[in-house]
Simulated scan of single mutants.
Amino acid sequence: MQLIIMDARLARSRSITLSGPRLLLAVLGLALVLMCMAAGLYHLVFLKGAREGWPVVSDLVRLVARDDTAQRERFMRQNIDAMARKVGEMQARMVQLESLSDRISGLAGVPLPSNGSGKAGAAPGQGGVLVASRPLSLGELQRTLDDLEQLSGQRADLMTVMESRLMDQHLAKHMIPTQEPVPGNVVGSGFGWRIDPITGGSALHTGLDFATAQGSDILAAAGGVVVTQEFHPAYGNMVEIDHGNQVITRYAHASKVLVRRGDLVRRGQKIAEVGTTGRSTGPHLHFEVWVQGVLQDPRKFLAAGDAATRTQGARASPLPGRAAAGAVARR
């Protein structure tokens, strides 16, 4: 393509030859310039018409703005409704959590704070037929979330207290010497005054004797810390366990000791084997309980453990009437 430019005043002409690539670049450049001019003109006219209130332009601006606002409101309403449904689910789970905390607080012995309904820890009754509803505002949703956050914080603190109380109860239960040190064996000699088997005179027997075979297992009556592991002239191979609260148990005449001073032991753990070391006439375990430095009858503690075991077994077993009814039904 060839362009000829003529200048009449200077009486001369100039020709420009455009090849294929140059022609394409020229067309693209011209199109870009026209687009920029059209966009600038449209922007200038549109803004000026919107500011000055031109009839057609101002109507278009209002329609565009109204449509954009409505679209934003629909989007926000959808998000708020979705958040409201999530908040409703959180409230339902919080009610379940309150019910669970009520039951656990009874086990832990921790009183629940009153919620203003007159009953401590009770969630107010809610429900019924849906008569009318309206969408929640953002402020109402925020207040509901704040209330849930406050309630969840209170419940978390309460759960922490109950966990600590239950842990204390669990430790206290396992620190009381109620486990038989030699299970299934009858006590040969009880606590109190008796005829001494060696001297034949009257003497105070300071514990319980469990006569059993040589090498039988000796179990810790409760969890605690081994404070003594030594050979005593009268007690022979002896182990003492401190259970806290100034409660100590002593295990004597062992043939073999499996723990050392400073060891942590748990309830029912094997700590030694039955023997006849020390002042003894035959294989047996001599078992003592000390409370605040005073000897106690170990039977009281072992009997308490047996009673607790029977109580748990009664709770776990089905009622006789139900069992009989089930038997009849099976027939």
Rank of each mutant, 00 (worst) to 15 (best):
M35C: 11
M35G: 10
M35H: 09
M35I: 11
C36L: 15
C36A: 14
M37N: 09
A38P: 04
A38H: 09
A39L: 15
A39W: 10
G40S: 11
Y42W: 14
L44R: 12
L44S: 11
V45N: 15
V45E: 14
V45I: 14
F46W: 08
L47P: 00
L47S: 06
L47E: 09
L47F: 13
L47D: 06
K48R: 14
K48V: 03
K48D: 10
G49S: 04
G49C: 06
G49W: 05
A50R: 00
A50V: 01
A50H: 00
R51I: 15
R51S: 05
R51L: 13
E52K: 12
G53W: 00
G53L: 03
G53D: 05
W54R: 06
P55L: 10
P55Q: 07
V56H: 13
V57C: 08
V57Q: 07
V57D: 02
V57E: 02
V57F: 01
S58N: 11
D59C: 08
D59Y: 14
D59K: 14
L60I: 05
L60R: 07
V61S: 02
L63P: 00
L63A: 15
L63G: 10
L63C: 12
A65T: 08
A65K: 02
A65G: 05
R66K: 07
R66W: 02
R66C: 05
D67R: 15
D68S: 08
T69Y: 12
T69L: 15
A70R: 05
Q71I: 06
Q71A: 14
Q71D: 08
R72E: 13
R72L: 06
E73V: 03
R74N: 00
R74S: 05
R74E: 02
F75G: 08
M76H: 07
M76N: 08
M76D: 09
R77Y: 02
R77H: 01
R77Q: 04
Q78D: 02
N79H: 12
I80R: 03
I80H: 02
D81Y: 06
D81L: 09
A82S: 14
A82H: 02
M83D: 10
A84S: 09
A84P: 01
R85T: 12
R85P: 03
E89W: 02
M90P: 00
